[in-house]
Measured scan of single mutants.
Amino acid sequence: MDETGKELVLALYDYQEKSPREVTMKKGDILTLLNSTNKDWWKVEVNDRQGFVPAAYVKKL
C-alpha cells in the first residue's frame, strides 16, 4: 500500500495497450490497483492514466 492506503501492484512484464481501455506498463513499474474483481483484467492507474492490464502480468505488493 502507498501512503494513501491504496493497494499497489508490480508490473512483472512489459505490456503495450491494445485498446483505449488499457494502459501501457513496463516491467518494474509500480501501479495503483483500482479494481481486481475480474480474474483476468485488473484496473490500475499509472502515470495519471486509468485502464486495464492483464492480471497475470502484475503482482500485488
Rank of each mutant, 00 (worst) to 15 (best):
Phe52Trp: 15
Val46Ala: 15
Asp40Ala: 10
Leu10Phe: 09
Arg21Lys: 10
Lys6Asn: 09
Val44Asn: 01
Thr4Cys: 14
Lys26Ala: 08
Leu61Met: 09
Leu34Asp: 01
Ala11Tyr: 01
Leu31His: 03
Glu45Asp: 06
Asp29Gly: 05
Val58Arg: 00
Arg21Gln: 13
Leu10Thr: 07
Glu17Asp: 05
Leu34Thr: 04
Lys27Met: 08
Asn38Trp: 07
Gln50Glu: 10
Met25Ser: 00
Lys39Val: 11
Asp40Trp: 15
Glu45Leu: 10
Asp14Thr: 06
Trp42Phe: 07
Gly28Glu: 02
Tyr15Asn: 00
Arg49Lys: 11
Lys18Trp: 04
Arg49Phe: 05
Gly5Cys: 13
Ile30Leu: 07
Gln50Ser: 11
Met1Ile: 13
Lys60Gly: 05
Asn47Cys: 12
Pro54Trp: 03
Thr24Pro: 06
Arg21Tyr: 15
Val46Arg: 15
Ala55Ile: 04
Pro20Thr: 11
Glu3Tyr: 08
Ser36Gly: 11
Lys60Thr: 08
Leu31Val: 06
Thr24Met: 04
Tyr13Thr: 07
Pro54Asn: 03
Lys60Pro: 10
Ile30Trp: 04
Val44Trp: 01
Arg49Cys: 06
Asp48Thr: 10
Leu31Arg: 00
Ser19Val: 05
Asp2Thr: 13
Val44Leu: 03
Lys26Phe: 10
Leu33Met: 03
Val23Thr: 06
Met1Glu: 12
Pro54Ala: 02
Val46Pro: 00
Glu3Ser: 14
Val53His: 00
Tyr15Gly: 00
Lys59Pro: 02
Asp48Leu: 10
Gln16Asp: 14
Gln50Lys: 10
Thr32Lys: 13
Asn38Ala: 08
Ser19Trp: 06
Val58Asp: 01
Gln16Gly: 07
Ser36Ala: 13
Val53Ala: 02
Phe52His: 05
Leu10Met: 13
Leu10Glu: 12
Asn35Met: 08
Trp42Ile: 05
Asn38Cys: 08
Thr4Met: 14
Ala11Lys: 00
Thr4His: 12
Asn38Gln: 09
Phe52Met: 08
Arg21Leu: 14
Glu17Pro: 15
Leu31Ala: 07
Asp14Ala: 06
Gln50Met: 09
Lys43Ala: 08
Val46Gly: 13
Lys18Asn: 10
Pro54Thr: 01
Met1Arg: 10
Val9Pro: 00
Leu10Cys: 09
Gly28Tyr: 05
Thr32Tyr: 12
Leu10Asp: 01
Lys39Leu: 09
Ala55Gln: 05
Glu17His: 08
Arg49Ser: 06
Ser19Asn: 13
Glu45Gly: 08
Tyr57Asp: 03
Gly28Arg: 02
